[in-house]
Design a protein around this nucleic acid. Structure first.
Lengths: 240, 240
DNA sequence: CGGAAACTTGAAACCTTTCAAGAGTCGTGG
DNA sequence: CCACGACTCTTGAAAGGTTTCAAGTTTCCG
């Protein structure tokens, strides 16, 4: 039985019994390793919708793991235009945008009530020495972040319909991997934000969702999406 | 005196006297560290235009550093469409697309005669133990790769003219940082490849370069570009 | 319950692509 | 060294996809 994506779901406090442990940092680490990490990660913190996990220009504080809720990664250009570069689900890690020069190049904002844990920067070095496999895990996660952006670059070069289809498929896949229903979920993004993420006008997003609904591919009720024909969506999208 | 980007320039063999050492892996490492890396990196290898440094699906062999020549990073979708995700200059590192699961998710192709060095995967662990700062350098470079893709995502959401302007500015900046002339260079990409990289038709690239020339911003002679008004270009581009 | 925000829908405008043709360049071989 | 052919680049015109503008509807939150 899968749970519906819902921030009110109570999640556990330590890495041991965290439902995200398979996806979060401690993948492929043994019990003893997880003990050490669990001590350092500490209690989760909670934010409200619109709060920042970090802001562009902030010093790197550590790698963060979302336990519940969703977040968006955004950056701005000189003219003040906002660009969303990622949409993050529970179990996903963020903070890698500060890897290059110890300062965040993007901001991370909670899209709803959100809780997260933190692997503090100042303890990363020591922790990596004590837990050799952790290093590999961190590189693996940095690699995942990179792969997600590569995929974003590819999708951005496809026509509008494919971008929206790809967005839904990507979301469905990631929800499934994290134990949420892959066919029935509630978007925490507005049409405006989806459009910004995909490089489309919000009206285009609305129209394409409608056309998918007319085609029997999905059922749309404002932010609630139910996928009725996942294969049909996949066939629309060259990338998946 | 800066040198013109030219693959025939003879470059040195070891990290010690490599003109790229400031940009390549050994930044912020001491002489002794560089000694160790230099031994392992070994002699550079040479490829011809069209040769692959690695292919999508290949096992991760190591981090590569371009000593001379340029390369493109490409990936393909199911329909066989090619997407270029990066354009790399001498002194730049590649291979991070295999970080997530030890297999390359993209291919890297030489755009002209190219030479490179290799930091072999199987020695990375040991080397990182011996040279603690190397790890930080590798993370820093992974972060740079990520930042470059983020910038690509942002640029892809701007109108065609800004994308081309941004492409030229980005190239100019990177050439300058590497000791090449930032105002006079030869593209190793065709209009088709630039278009693919920027998500534009090749004709659009051609037309926009022409319009920049008409506006006195640049001088175009096929692949040879001379920037006459860098500030003017920058003003066209919200991102820079 | 009221007002602001979010979403939908239609029509016109606009930017970019596609199609097409011609000119220039580069590398190879005679 | 020149000629040929393949490839690349340029340029124009029409077609097409997406955005913008505008108005109306629904939802959400205080």
């Amino acid at each position: 039985m899968t749970q519906t994506l819902d921030v009110r779901t109570k999640l556990q406090v330590t890495c041991h019994n965290c439902s995200l442990s398979e996806l979060c940092i401690p993948r492929g680490l043994n019990q003893c390793d997880i003990d050490r990490i669990s001590q350092i990660v500490g209690r989760k913190k909670t934010l409200q919708k619109g709060d920042y996990l970090y802001r562009k220009g902030d010093r790197f504080r550590g790698i963060l793991a979302i336990k519940a809720g969703t977040a968006k990664i955004v950056t701005m250009d000189q003219s003040g235009n906002e660009y969303m570069t990622a949409y993050l689900l529970p179990g996903e890690l963020l903070g890698f945008d500060a890897l290059a020069d110890d300062r965040h190049t993007c901001s991370a904002m909670a899209l709803e009530t959100l809780s997260y844990c933190e692997l503090p920067a100042e303890q990363l070095d020591a922790l990596c020495r004590d837990v050799p496999n952790l290093l590999r895990e961190l590189f693996r996660h940095a690699g995942n972040t990179l792969a997600a952006e590569t995929s974003q670059i590819v999708l951005a070069k496809r026509p509008a319909e494919e971008r929206v289809a790809g967005f839904l498929i990507n979301l469905s896949d990631r929800l499934a991997r994290r134990g949420f229903s892959p066919l029935d979920f509630r978007l925490s993004l507005t049409r405006q934000e989806i459009g910004n993420f995909l490089g489309l006008a919000l009206e285009t997003v609305s129209r394409i969702l409608k056309s998918f609904e007319d085609g029997g591919l999905i059922e749309v009720n404002y932010k609630q999406i139910r996928i009725q024909n996942l294969d049909g969506l996949r066939r629309l999208c060259a990338e998946y």
